[in-house]
Amino acid sequence: MAELYLVRHGQASLGSDNYDRLSEKGEQQSIWLAEHFARNGLRFDRVVTGTLQRHAQTLDAIRRALPDVPVECEILPGLDEYDFHALFRALDAEHRNLAESVTSDPREFFKALRQVLQLWAEGELDERVPETWGAFQQRVAAVRVAIQQSGAQHVLAVTSGGVIGALTQQALQAPAATAIALNMQIRNSSVTRCFFNRETFQLSSFNAVSHLEDPQRHAFQTYG
């Protein structure tokens, strides 16, 4: 069986004018992850990312500490995160309080996001969003199939929490609520490992942060 290592990007800049860039903490997380890969002798024969800046910056940081990562990287838009800004903008008057409750406190943001994702998955926002929940699920599934059919044996994919949650949900053949619950748990620079061949896609481990388990690194276990 081939292996897929799904890496969530390092901490981004939640609450700033441009969320789609790594914080200093996010860059350090990514470097430590690469050092962990190196210590464990991990090698990759295919690298894929989404189109987002935080994906590219995470991969750049990984390359600095793991220089034998393949130079060629395939950009797959299917690995991009859902547009959470668009989801909040799509709220109707009945649910406008969710957007208004979002402050600079990350806990308040994620509490509101969970509820917005549930509305999205239930089809409540379909007429006002650029991508429905069903379309999101389909593009994530298409990426999974493309990786399964690629012929690669050791794949590194840098992506986002929503995509990892959906891929894990699909591997478990679980309902939409599972994808949302998993999404809310996924830590920055975490690794979700899957085994696959052309016919089968199986979850091996989820949301691992072995590179951040040292007590001196606990402050680097982040979610944004």
Rank of each mutant, 00 (worst) to 15 (best):
V7H: 00
R8L: 06
H9F: 12
H9K: 12
L14I: 10
L14C: 09
G15H: 08
S16G: 13
R21Q: 12
K25R: 12
G26R: 09
G26C: 14
E27S: 15
Q28E: 14
Q29K: 04
W32T: 01
W32R: 11
W32G: 03
L33M: 06
L42Q: 02
L42F: 07
R43N: 12
F44V: 00
D45W: 01
R46C: 06
R46K: 08
V47H: 00
T49D: 12
G50E: 15
L52I: 06
L52E: 09
L52C: 10
Q53V: 14
Q57I: 06
Q57Y: 14
L59C: 08
A61K: 05
R63G: 00
R64Y: 04
R64F: 02
R64K: 15
A65T: 07
A65Y: 05
D68I: 05
V69H: 01
V71W: 02
C73A: 15
L76Y: 10
P77M: 12
G78Q: 14
G78F: 09
L79D: 05
A86C: 12
A86M: 11
L87R: 11
R89V: 04
R89W: 13
D92C: 10
D92F: 03
E94M: 08
H95L: 04
L98P: 00
T103Y: 12
S104R: 15
D105K: 09
E108A: 07
K111M: 03
A112V: 04
L113E: 02
Q115T: 13
V116H: 10
Q118K: 12
L119I: 07
W120T: 09
A121I: 06
E122Q: 14
L125N: 03
L125M: 10
D126V: 15
D126I: 08
E127H: 13
R128F: 01
V129M: 12
P130C: 15
E131A: 11
E131H: 10
W133C: 15
F136E: 03
F136C: 06
Q137K: 14
Q137C: 15
Q138K: 11
V140E: 08
V140I: 10
A141G: 07
A142T: 10
A146T: 09
Q149N: 03
G151P: 01
G151T: 01
A157V: 14
A157D: 10
T159K: 11
S160T: 14
S160R: 10
S160G: 13
S160P: 06
L167Q: 01
T168W: 03
Q170F: 09
Q173H: 13
A174S: 15
A177M: 14
T178S: 07
A179D: 03
A179K: 07
L182Y: 01
Q185A: 09
N188M: 12
S190W: 01
R193T: 09
C194E: 01
F195C: 03
F196C: 04
F196P: 02
E199I: 00
F201V: 00
S204D: 09
F206R: 02
V209Q: 04
V209M: 02
S210N: 02
L212G: 01
L212N: 04
E213H: 00
E213W: 00
P215A: 00
R217C: 03
R217T: 03
Y223E: 05
